[in-house]
Nucleic acid binder design. Structure first.
Lengths: 191, 191
DNA sequence: AAAACGAATTGACCACGGTCAGCTTTCGGG
DNA sequence: CCCGAAAGCTGACCGTGGTCAATTCGTTTT
């Protein structure tokens, strides 16, 4: 569960993760089966569960890894100067987290618990908070709220936009546009 | 799946629902097992799935029934006159939807799809929209947004508050207070 | 009333995540 | 080098949701 001690165990774990990544690349996150993973890694099923408390824990790691890469990119991005720009900046994140229904559900469950996904998302909060300047927001955004509250609001809107997107397969729900509307209403109220 | 034609089938379906409600009353939503339900209703397992596409469909109906009763109560409630009042008014809804992790996850999945839960929640949107008056909000709330956008914003904040509450078993997260903070920021910006 | 046909029901079966008592490997100390 | 303890691994087994070919029941037609 925690980082293994012996070299053999570390190798096993790495094999499991590598096998899982290959399967995800081929069949998507939702298509992964634990039996497949252990077979590909050449270990017994029970071994899987000595390394990961359950399937979700592994999946969280895989998703978090990708999410983390997006955070690296965002960290060097320019501070957006409008609500629309802010929404657009979040585009890649939205795309990843809504690429499959399975992924979205997983993230939703994990987004406020302890774990790598919550960690990655809190990085996002920190980045956004940074964009808003110091203790309070900075123009052109409103300046009466703490960045923490603002970041949480943005997170709520983002989740909502993604949820609608994922719930309506087929229909183009334009999550980024919907997000921009809400973010603008929230961060740039009239006057 | 859809309303059965023969009298016998309608009775079977009613038995299944009654059995399920009894089990939920005893063991909670998350404790319900399909095998239990069919045993209590005196039918075979396969029968269950001719009446409900899957377990979730039944559970949605049970939760939606309770939710619907809350909507009936809300419909006759007075229009709240502050953000805090608005948040408090949503208290019973929050309480129901966060009474179990299982319920919250179910609702989250169902809240934007087709089905009884989405229907009940859209009733809530209509009620809230009504509170905001006509085409736009009404004082003391901001008046530059359409009620539809406002209702969606409130929904996003509500889900977020509930998600945090459910994700932190033990810790008192005061979802109503958190919700009030966001709603106030959103609906009553300075100036 | 008998035949014919679709609705409803059945239960053995499957897929898949997860468990656990027992076995094997690794490693530190004598 | 050997031994004992701890870490790691195994695979038969389980619980639970869901499937489907076969069968029974109810209704309509002749």
């Amino acid at each position: 569960m925690t980082e293994p001690i012996q070299r053999r165990a570390r190798a096993t774990r790495a094999n499991l993760i590598a096998a899982a990544e290959a399967i995800v690349a081929r069949e998507g996150f939702g298509g992964l089966r634990v039996e497949q993973v252990v077979k590909a890694a050449g270990v017994a099923k029970g071994t899987f569960f000595t390394h990961f408390a359950d399937k979700d824990v592994l999946m969280e790691q895989l998703v978090a890894k990708r999410l983390s890469r997006l955070m690296d990119a965002l960290q060097t991005a320019r501070r957006p100067s409008s609500a629309k720009g802010l929404a657009a900046t979040l585009g890649p994140v939205i795309e990843l987290l809504t690429c499959e229904r399975y992924v979205f559900d997983l993230v939703q469950r994990a987004s406020l618990a302890d774990g790598p996904i919550a960690e990655a998302l809190s990085r996002l909060d920190i980045i956004i908070t940074g964009w808003f300047g110091g203790l309070f927001g900075a123009p052109p955004f409103r300046t009466d709220l703490s960045p923490k509250v603002m970041a949480e609001g943005i997170r709520a809107f983002t989740l909502m936009a993604m949820a609608r997107h994922v719930a309506r397969p087929g229909k183009q729900t334009e999550p980024i546009k919907a997000l921009a509307t809400q973010v603008e209403a929230y961060l740039m109220p009239p006057e």
